[in-house]
């Protein structure tokens, strides 16, 4: 299976995964997780227009068209945010559905009106076709990815500020609007590059899943970006390998499932922020609070029963009281617990 073609596809997929993950991280932090989805849809009419106007079906021309309408989508989003009462969620949904609708109308029109119009290969862009990747495509992805990376590194400080606290950034004199546009522009470029490989929904997923998964492991931005890129690369390259080895498995969806699996693993098992440690920490904190509360209750009332504690909402009254007994704070006496009158008031044990 290690053919030349597999290697090309593998490299292209890995580069795409990393690039989408990096730009997606900023979008997710900026609370625009679905931006990639919106702009991927907004690219569709551009593909059809480019084909219609030039009659050419070569990838660079179609993708230039895609990027153009994607950028128009961004301009509209930025204008609406600044000037209209439409909320961001509705603006995003509008751009997504209207642009995509225009794309479908245009494509059907071209297909019917232009002799030999075919479908402008539209389905390829909606659902993607990784196996069709050639060396030129990989070079393209690499070039665009490198350019994006340089831009991200050059404006790292500013992007970080804007994605964590846009209001504060604005008061500090950061060009928030410009940085927002730059961030969205990077997303457009990443998803447009990914469209022919994995399709609309899947390229959107590549901007969301790695970033969200990586968020469970760290809250330091440089680490977050590196981790998201790694997760993106692992998912895309393993996905590409899988469908190269097992024909009949669609590449894009397999990549997303892998990324989804990494998300689930991160969400459950990541130390500190993962669900399992989080729940355990919460229940420990709750138990400590319950113990403290029971101690204060006992001191105030001198004697308590299990039903006293249940009435107050203690989940495990017996265990809590037995803990107090073992610490010598309480004494068990025939169904009731009494304050043991410990010599010194128990000091802060922490």
């Amino acid at each position: 299976m290690w053919t030349y073609n597999t290697a090309i596809v593998l490299i292209g997929a890995a580069l795409l995964g990393a690039q989408c993950a990096v730009v997606g991280t900023f979008a997710v932090l900026r609370r625009r997780a679905l931006l990639g989805d919106v702009l991927a849809h907004a690219a569709l009419p551009g593909i059809v227009l480019a084909f219609w106007l030039t009659g050419n079906r070569s990838l660079p021309i179609l993708l230039t068209g895609a990027a153009s309408t994607g950028l128009i989508g961004i301009a509209i989003l930025a204008y609406l945010k600044k000037r209209s009462r439409t909320r961001e969620d509705a603006a995003l949904g509008l751009v997504l559905s209207v642009f995509f609708g225009i794309g479908i109308a245009l494509s059907r029109y071209v297909q019917n009106a232009v002799p030999g119009g075919g479908k402008a290969g539209l389905d390829t862009f909606i659902f993607g076709k990784t196996a069709g990747i050639v060396l030129a495509d990989v070079l393209g992805v690499a070039l665009v990815g490198a350019l994006s990376l340089v831009l991200v590194m050059g404006t790292f400080k500013e992007l970080r500020m804007v994605s964590f606290d846009p209001q504060f950034a604005a008061t500090q004199g950061y060009p928030v609007v410009f940085l927002d546009l730059l961030m969205m522009g990077l997303v457009v470029v990443a998803v447009v590059v990914g469209l022919p490989m994995v399709g609309i929904v899947m390229v959107a997923a590549l901007t969301i899943l790695p970033a969200v998964a990586a968020r469970f492991w760290t809250s330091r931005l440089p680490v977050l970006l590196a981790l998201a890129a790694t997760i993106g690369m692992v998912a895309t390259s393993l996905g590409a390998l899988w469908s190269a080895a097992q024909p009949g498995w669609p590449t894009g969806p397999v990549m997303i499932l892998l990324a989804g699996g990494l998300f689930v693993l991160s969400a459950l098992f990541a130390p500190h922020r993962g669900l399992i440690t989080d729940l355990r920490r919460r229940s420990r904190a709750r138990a400590a609070l319950a113990e403290k509360a029971a101690e204060e209750l006992l001191r105030a009332r001198q004697t308590v029963t299990l039903s006293d504690l249940s009435r107050l909402g203690f989940r495990r009254p017996r265990q809590t009281l037995e803990l107090l007994v073992s610490r010598g704070v309480a004494l068990a006496r025939a169904g009731t617990w009494v304050w043991a009158n410990p010599p010194a008031p128990s000091e802060d044990r922490s």
């Binding site: 609370r31 997780a33 989805d37 997923a205 969301i208 899943l209 970033a211 969200v212 998300f263």
Partner: peptide, 10 residues
Amino acid sequence: DASLGVVFTI
């Protein structure tokens, strides 16, 4: 927004 994106793409 992010959790919605995660769930529906998967």
